[in-house]
Amino acid sequence: MKDVAFGQYYPVESFVHKLDPRLKLLFLIAYIVAIFVATNFYGLAVCAFVLILAVAFSRVPVLKVLRAIRGVLFLVLFTAVLNVLFHTGETVYWQYGILCISKEGILFSVFFVIRLVLLVVCSSLLTYTTTPVSLTDGIESLLTPLKWIRFPVHELALIMSIALRFIPILSDETGRIMNAQKARGADFETGGLIKKIRAVVPILIPLLLSAFRRADELGEAMDARCYMGSKNRTKYKKLTFGWRDAIGFLLGAAMVTGVVLLRVYLTGVV
């Protein structure tokens, strides 16, 4: 649990890993837009192709990437079935009341499934290839314009990074407290819902107290190191755009343009 590997980060060196986190975040946004702009299979094919390329260059095993879909599999299948049953079309194969199965319905449903799968794979690729820390840095940097409207960007980023720092500590601590209470005969496995909820109290209270104590001490330590908010603060780490990012940017731009063109000139395929 003590590892950066909490979350999903997959620690290898690759082209995609080395990309600027801001670019990757922007790429994800562009990708989502592209998927929803694409209204035909050609557009989706372009998106899929770009994603396959990205996965290939990320050196994350394909199996691991596909595993990300497993978590949302039920949701995908459920919506797919609904889409088939409730979508009406011209070529009807079967009908019962408002439920019907049509060629258009099936195509629409398949289209929808592909969209969802691409979306899930692309966002998990981001978390596989970017450490939580640099994601936070990226988000802070991208949100910088919001400082104009007095939005506390720096504070938000600091909160996120401290949270990331303390997740493994608190998770270790939970294990420790659970063991201590188990040694005193606490039982977290058997019994009904109410009993289980009650069984959590001896863990939750020490955990909360510990979190408060830690927060208190951290606050003091930050004060002692002259923390006074974002005023006059400099930043050591600078995110820099490199040649890889240029390539990534061009690829993303090409993809969006391609999808838009396909939509304009090839309407009505689906």
């Binding site: 820390v133 990074s161 401290i162 190191r225 006074m228 050591y236």
Partner: peptide, 16 residues
């Protein structure tokens, strides 16, 4: 404060 050594060492110096 930070997860990586150099980021944490930098914290105080950044603050001032």
């Amino acid at each position: 404060v930070a997860s990586i050594v150099e980021d944490d060492v930098a914290f105080g110096a950044e603050n001032v």
